[in-house]
Lab assay of single mutants.
Amino acid sequence: EAHFQVQLEQLRSMGFLNREANLQALIATGGDVDAAVEKLRQS
């Protein structure tokens, strides 16, 4: 989780407030914030 701290903060600042969902999306996308946003929008 600490590995994705910067990305988690970016997602939070973009309005994605579900930390667990954000973390799962980042893990699934290897930390790619843009891909994580797409994944979160689809769910």
Score class of each variant (00 low, 15 high):
residue 1 E to M: 08
residue 2 A to M: 08
residue 2 A to L: 08
residue 2 A to Q: 14
residue 2 A to T: 08
residue 3 H to E: 13
residue 4 F to A: 02
residue 4 F to C: 03
residue 4 F to S: 01
residue 4 F to D: 02
residue 5 Q to A: 10
residue 5 Q to D: 10
residue 5 Q to I: 09
residue 6 V to Q: 15
residue 6 V to T: 09
residue 6 V to Y: 10
residue 6 V to A: 11
residue 6 V to P: 12
residue 6 V to F: 06
residue 7 Q to Y: 04
residue 7 Q to K: 05
residue 7 Q to S: 05
residue 7 Q to E: 07
residue 7 Q to R: 04
residue 7 Q to L: 06
residue 8 L to C: 04
residue 8 L to Q: 09
residue 8 L to M: 12
residue 8 L to R: 04
residue 8 L to W: 01
residue 9 E to P: 00
residue 9 E to D: 04
residue 9 E to R: 02
residue 10 Q to R: 08
residue 10 Q to V: 03
residue 10 Q to H: 03
residue 10 Q to E: 09
residue 12 R to S: 13
residue 12 R to M: 11
residue 12 R to A: 06
residue 12 R to I: 11
residue 12 R to E: 11
residue 12 R to V: 07
residue 13 S to M: 11
residue 13 S to H: 02
residue 13 S to Y: 06
residue 13 S to P: 03
residue 13 S to F: 12
residue 13 S to I: 04
residue 14 M to N: 08
residue 14 M to E: 08
residue 15 G to E: 12
residue 15 G to Y: 03
residue 15 G to Q: 07
residue 16 F to I: 01
residue 16 F to Q: 07
residue 16 F to K: 03
residue 17 L to H: 03
residue 18 N to I: 06
residue 18 N to R: 05
residue 18 N to F: 05
residue 19 R to Y: 15
residue 19 R to N: 12
residue 19 R to V: 10
residue 19 R to A: 12
residue 19 R to S: 08
residue 19 R to I: 13
residue 20 E to V: 05
residue 21 A to T: 14
residue 22 N to S: 04
residue 22 N to Q: 03
residue 23 L to K: 11
residue 23 L to S: 10
residue 23 L to Q: 12
residue 24 Q to I: 06
residue 24 Q to R: 07
residue 24 Q to Y: 02
residue 24 Q to W: 02
residue 25 A to R: 03
residue 26 L to N: 01
residue 27 I to V: 12
residue 27 I to E: 13
residue 27 I to Y: 04
residue 27 I to F: 06
residue 27 I to Q: 11
residue 28 A to M: 05
residue 28 A to E: 12
residue 28 A to N: 07
residue 28 A to V: 07
residue 29 T to M: 06
residue 29 T to A: 13
residue 29 T to G: 07
residue 29 T to C: 14
residue 29 T to S: 12
residue 29 T to Q: 08
residue 30 G to Y: 06
residue 30 G to K: 12
residue 30 G to Q: 11
residue 30 G to N: 13
residue 31 G to E: 02
residue 31 G to P: 01
residue 31 G to W: 03
residue 32 D to H: 07
residue 32 D to T: 08
residue 32 D to W: 02
residue 33 V to T: 10
residue 33 V to I: 11
residue 33 V to M: 03
residue 33 V to R: 06
residue 34 D to S: 07
residue 34 D to R: 06
residue 35 A to K: 15
residue 35 A to Q: 13
residue 35 A to L: 11
residue 36 A to M: 00
residue 36 A to G: 03
residue 37 V to W: 03
residue 37 V to C: 15
residue 37 V to I: 09
residue 38 E to T: 12
residue 39 K to Q: 10
residue 39 K to S: 11
residue 40 L to P: 00
residue 40 L to D: 01
residue 40 L to C: 05
residue 40 L to G: 01
residue 41 R to G: 12
residue 41 R to W: 03
residue 41 R to K: 15
residue 42 Q to V: 11
residue 42 Q to K: 11
residue 43 S to T: 09
